Simulated scan of single mutants.
Amino acid sequence: MKTQLELNVSSRGAMSGVLTMGSLDPAFAAATGVDGGPVALDLSTVEFVEPAGLCGLAALLEYLCERCEDVSLALPRRDVPAYLERMDFFRIFGDRITTNADLESLGERRRHNPGTLQELVNFHTEEEIPGIIHRISEILENQGYRLRERVAICSTLSEVCANAAEHGVSSFGAYAAVQAYHHIVSGSRRRGEEVLIAIADGGVGVRETLSRNPKYAEETATDNDALRHALEMGVSGTGEIGRGGGLALVAGIAARSGGSLSLRSGKGRVTVYESRKNSRNVPQFPGTFVRVSLPRTAVSSQQETKG
């Protein structure tokens, strides 16, 4: 008998029809109970996929493909399959899952590089990271970010990716995806630009990584405790000088721009905004997940151009 995994795709508001990481929570909760038989995931209500949803879906499918004899994906017959093809999703998973999408016709579509996205990329080693970071820098430059902004963002994201490669020791390593948008930016109703960055790995998670350092024993009682501590400067599982700044710096950069950083691992999730830090319990995530929102309102972009 086929196990049907459910989604929680919002049907109202600005996030209506959008596949986010949170949309996959019911599927992740049920995935821990799969018994090796066929599994189906229904994405027919999805109208739009953001990078976080794409990386989350990749991590979920990696988890399922290792444990199930057959994994099927039902997609809407609209723009979503074309977007997934453009983001290289089917190049990675096309031979590993069954789907109702016509992959042959999708593969024949003309592709172009709009300068606003980094396709879904799978990486395992630090040697692969410079290419990812270079692409992120290009996207930021295309969106008008100044050199010093790009250097700050990319240097810290490089450490986040390095953490994913180092601690994401699993069969699939880590995934990253990036896209820039022109829409209503996060946290406000002002129109502007926003760059969304998502990174997911299949490693042991933040709590176990930090618990290897004895001085963090009191800070890792729960997954959320470990996540909040990991967002402080200088905190790393290795204890090496110069490590442990990436997450804190990226969170600060995102918050100052009116965006956010969301860190998820195990059953915890912590999101950092400009003036607050929220944590909540969520279904088990097999590894560590980072989502960064970097918005720029039209007003701030014009002010920086004049400066």
Rank of each mutant, 00 (worst) to 15 (best):
N113K: 02
L24M: 14
L64G: 12
G173I: 02
A27C: 14
S171G: 10
I184G: 09
R243S: 03
Y175R: 15
A251Q: 15
A29S: 14
S44V: 10
G17W: 06
T98K: 09
T98R: 13
R111D: 01
A254S: 03
R135G: 06
Q143H: 10
S72E: 04
N8Q: 08
V292E: 14
Q4F: 01
N122E: 14
R243C: 03
E50R: 13
N163P: 02
E304F: 13
F123S: 00
L210F: 15
S275P: 00
L54S: 15
N113H: 08
E108K: 13
A164F: 00
A226I: 01
E128G: 02
E240C: 12
R12P: 04
S211Y: 11
P295N: 10
P114H: 11
C65L: 06
V46S: 03
S300D: 12
G56K: 08
L84K: 12
L249P: 03
A198N: 13
Q284D: 03
G242H: 08
G244H: 02
A101G: 09
T125H: 15
N224P: 09
L57E: 03
L294Q: 06
D79N: 12
K306T: 15
L147Y: 06
E66T: 02
M1T: 06
V204C: 00
G173H: 11
A254M: 05
A58W: 04
V195T: 02
M233D: 08
A52L: 10
D88T: 10
E166Q: 10
E69S: 10
V235C: 06
T3K: 00
L54D: 15
E159N: 01
V270E: 03
P130F: 11
L249T: 00
E62P: 08
P81W: 15
L73Q: 07
R264D: 05
G168C: 05
D223G: 07
P51I: 03
T116S: 10
E208W: 06
I92P: 07
T20D: 05
R148K: 07
A248K: 15
T222M: 07
E138N: 10
S279R: 15
L75T: 13
P286S: 09
E159C: 05
L294S: 04
L247Y: 01
F285V: 09
A27D: 15
T125N: 12
L231P: 07
A152G: 13
T297E: 13
R135C: 01
L263T: 05
S16E: 00
A255L: 08
N224L: 01
E232A: 02
G144R: 11
E47G: 09
S137K: 11
L261T: 05
L120N: 07
G258P: 01
G33Y: 01
R189D: 00
N122C: 06
F28K: 12
S279T: 10
G245P: 04
S23M: 13
V250E: 12
A59I: 04
K267Q: 14
A101Q: 08
Q118I: 00
G239I: 01
E126S: 04
E232W: 13
V272H: 12
R148P: 04
G239P: 04
P286D: 05
S262H: 07
E232M: 09
T32A: 00
